[in-house]
């Protein structure tokens, strides 16, 4: 396959299959979770229904509690660099905004290419650091499974191929761009089936936990 056919393949049938898998997977997981039977709580609520606590927990769990701060704060910061850089690269780059507009009709002004490249570079660096941490920390290594490493690879590949396409590294531009879009397609397809689903489930899981705790009167 030459560069042109890889690009056409990635923009054509593979993208549609990835989109179908993304939507199917999200619908399957959300409906599967929300249609589950909830255990009946016979206890008297101590602080209303707990919805306020649920919303508070979505925010409060985004930063380590004071007790753990000294031990984990720096890794949280590295993680934030990765996430913010990733979000800037995805949501700020005009070709990406064009894709979002094509899918949803939504659009917003983009950022200069240099800013995007800087954000993507930082994000890639942070991802490498996080992988190093995962591999060197005995506890994290024990907790990690295939999903962690595979999800890491799927998050890292679009960043690297995107930077290569931007800077014209790696020879044939069409091939590099095609591989970048292909990497994005695979990320799309895998998202609902692995741990990357946290981009959608994060709010639900934290909110549900916060609501349950709040109902019982626990401080959030």
């Amino acid at each position: 396959m030459n560069g042109a056919s890889v690009l056409d393949f990635a923009r054509g049938p593979v993208f549609e299959i990835a989109l179908a898998m993304l939507i199917f997977g999200i619908a399957w997981r959300l409906v599967g979770i929300f249609a589950l039977r909830r255990p009946v709580d016979y206890s008297e609520p101590r602080a209303g229904t707990g919805w306020g606590s649920g919303l508070r927990m979505i925010v409060s769990r985004s930063w380590p509690r004071r007790e753990f701060r000294e031990r984990v704060l720096h890794w949280d910061i590295v993680s934030y660099i990765f996430h913010v850089g990733y979000a800037v690269a995805i949501l700020g780059y005009v070709p990406h905004i064009m894709l979002i507009r094509n899918l949803t009709g939504l659009q917003w002004p983009g950022l200069p290419g240099g800013v995007i490249a800087f954000a993507a570079g930082l994000s890639a660096g942070a991802l490498l650091a996080l992988l190093g941490h995962r591999l060197t920390s005995p506890v994290l290594r024990r907790l990690s499974n295939f999903d962690d490493y595979f999800s890491w690879l799927l998050a890292f590949t679009p960043l690297v191929t995107g930077l290569m396409a931007y800077y014209g590294i790696g020879g044939n531009y069409q091939m590099v761009l095609g591989l970048h879009i292909l990497a994005g397609d695979i990320l799309f397809a895998w998202l609902p089936f692995g741990k990357i689903m946290h981009v959608i489930l994060l709010a639900f899981s934290r909110g549900t936990t916060g609501a349950a705790y709040g109902r019982r009167g626990a401080p959030i």
Binding site: L22, F24, R29, V31, G32, I33
Partner: peptide, 11 residues
């Protein structure tokens, strides 16, 4: 198609 299949699978 994907939404219908996903909802059916979820249910």
């Amino acid at each position: 198609g994907a939404v219908a299949a996903g909802v059916a699978a979820g249910l």
